[in-house]
């Protein structure tokens, strides 16, 4: 994973270097420690792009995002906020899975029927609704009309309901679509016909066999889902004033605090990378086919004819 991370950072770094108006130099002209400077000056490449890139990476790794106003307390602050965001994101993920997976499965099994069409319409609506629009609607319904839920703040569970819905909204459409296509794909497979020839009940076939295979595919695309959920979390934390890392991000954006922004972005990138790793593991666990492909780099065949 590390090489991929470095590669991505390299691409980003190079892009930033060539785009006009970018001040990436500020981050890569100093820092990284004197020993690094020593090496570079002896090689006469103090100001070369390689040196700048190395310093940039080292700075990021050290968590030194430059002299920001709050860089001193940045560490512990970030961790507290991180935990909060993680909770919110997790709830949102669970909600979108609970809604999306059954909906997608239903649509796939009853393909072309009324259920399928209804799910398609709902997916279209959900993906056309930006998170903040949904947030507005939710606040209208639950706060103003029914006076059920508190709009801002955090603490007791009620404060979490609407933000979770906003986060989930970003993910539901994608989850449904992915599940539907994965299950649909499995249902057309030969082994499903064989399962029916075995005389198994439809329910058993779908929920035991098809699910197991389809979920592998769905989980593999967890990283994409994570991006969507992150977007939702950004809006949710901003709208409902929840103290997560995304709120810090938006606040430092409005406050034009470049260093904090960079810090938050770096942390979020690392988190997404970890999600990537986890999703690969989970996919391998769910589908032995994927596991073997990963471990042995291709199908392994033993046994004679």
């Amino acid at each position: 994973m590390a090489p991929t991370f470095l590669a991505i950072m390299l691409v980003v770094f190079l892009l930033m270097s060539v785009l006009p108006g970018s001040n990436i130099n500020e981050f890569s002209s100093n820092g990284g420690g004197d020993w690094l400077d020593g090496i570079f000056s002896s090689l006469n490449m103090t100001d070369s792009i390689v040196a700048r890139y190395v310093r940039y990476i080292v700075n990021l790794a050290k968590g030194d995002f430059g002299e920001g106003r709050s860089s001193a307390g940045l560490g512990s602050n970030i961790f507290y906020r991180l935990g909060f965001t993680a909770k919110l994101a997790l709830f949102g993920f669970l909600l979108s899975a609970i809604i999306g997976i059954p909906a997608g499965t239903l649509a796939a099994v009853k393909r072309g029927g009324r259920a399928d069409k209804a799910v398609s319409v709902l997916t279209l609506v959900m993906s056309s609704l930006p998170s903040y629009a949904l947030a507005v609607v939710l606040v209208l319904i639950f706060c103003l009309y029914f006076n059920l839920l508190p709009p801002f703040g955090f603490g007791t569970p009620e404060y979490y309901i609407m933000p979770t819905m906003v986060v989930a909204a970003g993910g539901v459409a994608m989850t449904t679509r992915m599940t539907r296509s994965a299950v649909s794909g499995e249902l057309g497979s030969q082994y499903v016909m064989v399962l029916r020839a075995k005389g198994l009940t439809g329910r058993r076939i779908v929920w035991l066999h098809v699910m197991k295979n389809a979920l592998g595919t769905v989980v593999a695309s967890l990283t994409n889902l994570a991006s969507q959920l992150l977007c939702g979390t950004l809006i949710a934390e901003n709208f409902f004033s929840m103290p997560g890392i995304c709120q810090l991000l938006t606040k430092s954006i409005s406050g034009r605090n470049q260093h904090t922004v960079l810090g938050c972005v770096a942390v979020l990138s690392v988190i997404l990378m970890m999600v990537n790793i986890v999703s690969d593991f989970a996919a391998a666990l769910l589908s032995p086919r994927i596991k073997d492909a990963m471990v042995y780099g291709g199908g392994r065949q033993n046994g004679e004819s």
């Binding site: 030969q190 009940t201 589908s287």
Partner: peptide
């Protein structure tokens, strides 16, 4: 459904895709 697999068995042409890959 109860006849299938019980009193009446079926085997198919292409064995490659006939078994559930994850069980």
């Amino acid at each position: 459904r109860s006849l299938r697999g019980g009193q009446v068995g079926m085997i198919f042409q292409d064995p490659m895709g006939c078994l559930d890959p994850s069980v």
